[in-house]
């Protein structure tokens, strides 16, 4: 193998630099902060792993982490099946295909802070269309600024509205790649609609679904802008997700050390769960 061309490394270099500057260097800074205490003026004191211990034992962290898992679990359990159902009901051929695709892509094109602001105004009692409709027309008490349950329902519905399209588009891409012969064979074999889904469509969508679930997990687990703009973490701390809490500690209280330790723990959890997901979902293929 002595004549193997080494030129490829040269092409990889720019990417290495880019990754170094936007990921490795900031992350090392965070690692640096996480083991030290600072009171400004560039003075640092060695703290060892104290911050990590403090965060891991703190009830506040446990509560935020719990809310974070609940949120991610809820949106995955709603968005994935809903996305598949919508993809299944979309036309595969004809003039309606581009119309459906554009409609589906629309929510994803809106900037995240705008989504939060939109839903905020939309749901406010008296002012917002939804708020007015619920409280004044239907007579159901609904105020996400006062009621934790209403706040939770709102952030989940908002995320479902914003991101189900991603699952839809990826599933749809998987569906249209299935040759007609499979459907014809299933008809002839007498398969029920459920059989067609279970044995043809689902296996053929598996790869894209894995990607969709991973993306939705990572995005929702790190979500910040939309719920922050919508509820600011309230009422009380009821919608204070991990990221919102992190920003509160880092920029609100300016506890850089604990915030750094917390973000590293946060990162490790995201990585670990993603890895577990990925291994579980691709396990079958390895056989």
């Amino acid at each position: 193998m002595k004549t193997e061309n080494q030129k490829a490394w040269f092409f990889v270099l720019p990417v290495l630099f880019l990754v170094a500057f936007n990921a490795l260097v900031p992350m090392m800074t965070v690692v640096n902060y996480s083991v030290q205490e600072t009171f400004g003026d560039n003075l640092f004191f060695w703290q060892g792993l104290d911050w990590f211990e403090q965060i891991l034992r703190s009830d506040r962290f446990h509560a935020a982490l719990g809310r974070q898992f609940l949120f991610t679990f809820m949106i995955l359990i709603i968005e994935v099946p809903l996305g598949i159902i919508i993809a299944l009901s979309m036309p595969r051929k004809g003039p309606w295909v581009p119309v459906c695709l554009v409609l589906m892509a629309l929510p994803m094109l809106i900037p995240w802070n705008v989504v939060g602001a939109m839903w905020n105004i939309f749901t406010l009692p008296k002012i917002g269309l939804l708020g007015y409709l619920m409280n004044d027309t239907l007579g159901i008490t609904y105020d996400m600024t006062q009621d934790p349950l209403a706040a939770w329902i709102t952030i989940i519905v908002m995320d479902v509205w914003h991101w189900t399209s991603l699952v839809v588009l990826l599933s749809y891409a998987g569906l249209v790649s299935i040759p007609d012969a499979y459907y014809q064979a299933a008809k002839i074999d007498g398969a029920s609609p459920w059989g067609v889904f279970r044995y043809i469509q689902l296996p053929k969508m598996k790869t894209v679904l894995t990607i969709a679930i991973l993306l939705r997990f990572m995005d929702s687990f790190n979500i910040y802008t939309e719920p922050f703009v919508l509820t600011g973490g309230g009422p009380g701390n009821s919608t204070t997700l991990l990221s919102i809490d992190l920003v509160k500690i880092a920029l609100g209280q300016f506890d850089l050390g604990p915030a750094a330790a917390m973000s590293l723990i946060y990162f490790a959890i995201t990585l670990l769960v993603s890895w577990v997901f990925y291994t579980l979902m691709t396990k079958d293929d390895a056989k």
């Binding site: 012969a181 014809q184 064979a185 008809k187 002839i188 007498g190 044995y199 296996p203 053929k204």
Partner: peptide
Amino acid sequence: LPPDQRNIAQVFQFPVIYDTM
């Protein structure tokens, strides 16, 4: 009649296999 009520069998140009079974 639709295919499933005709009681027929068909083999296609490309093998159709239920991958997960």
